[in-house]
């Protein structure tokens, strides 16, 4: 078995400093893009359930375009498009591209979870004299967030792994470092496996964070 050759383990251990730095880049990309994606997602979820038709159409078009085109195309469009009009680093064009992409999926997750909260909850809020906005903020959204958390966690993991596409724009994240090492040593397999280990560690940590939040929010069960 390849994994048992000394080569892989030495590579994994000796390169830990380099990959630790690359992992920080991957995490930064993921964190920034997911935070922006949550804001975008929430906004488009509200547009989609809005009674104002043009807003609903706009949200539908956005989701249709994002779901209907490859992420790598979106990232390159952001990269070449944005850098043409605006001095922006590779990091930020990938971060915005990933946010634009994940925002559409997160919008659908939020929309579904908001609509899954029974009508009675809104009626109870309104019957107490709460405004529609206050009812949404205090009654519906906290429950919807809780219900959205498992699919959101899933989307975060996808976002983390998709950040590897930043390698094609020259951002030194895990996959970029691995392919550079592979090219330098003519030993792609070793370095690809090293990068896989790092992704597994990051996804594991992300899963821990999400399930800790889930547990914290489950106190009312």
């Amino acid at each position: 078995m390849y994994l048992y050759s000394a080569n892989f383990w030495t590579a994994l251990i000796d390169s830990r400093g380099m990959f630790f730095e690359a992992a920080q880049m991957t995490l930064a990309l993921t964190a920034v893009s997911i935070l922006i994606a949550i804001v975008i997602g929430l906004m488009f979820a509200f547009m989609k359930i809005s009674k104002i038709k043009p807003l609903e159409w706009l949200a539908n078009i956005y989701i249709y375009v994002v779901r209907g085109t490859p992420l790598i195309v979106q990232i390159f469009v952001f990269y070449y498009g944005l850098t043409e009009v605006w001095m922006i680093s590779g990091f930020w064009s990938v971060a915005l591209g990933l946010a634009f992409h994940n925002g559409a999926y997160i919008a659908e997750i939020f929309r579904g979870s908001i609509q899954s909260i029974g009508k009675g909850q809104a009626e109870a809020g309104r019957s107490l004299g709460m405004s529609g906005t206050l009812t949404m903020r205090r009654i519906i959204l906290p429950q919807a967030f809780r219900r959205a958390l498992p699919p959101l966690g899933n989307q975060f993991i996808i976002g983390l792994k998709d950040s590897s596409l930043a390698a094609f724009i020259g951002v030194s994240e895990i996959f970029a470092v691995a392919t550079t090492q592979g090219a330098n040593t003519f030993d792609y397999m070793t370095w690809l496996l090293v990068s896989a280990v790092w992704y597994l560690i990051l996804v594991f940590l992300l899963t821990l964070v999400v399930s800790a939040i889930e547990k914290k929010m489950a106190v009312s069960d």
Partner: peptide, 20 residues
């Protein structure tokens, strides 16, 4: 919202806020 503050309502299915 002002009118409803004067008129309380109790529902068949309680509709308590489960997260509070």
């Amino acid at each position: 919202n002002k009118v409803r503050q004067q008129v309380g309502m109790v529902f068949q299915h309680f509709n308590l806020f489960p997260h509070m």
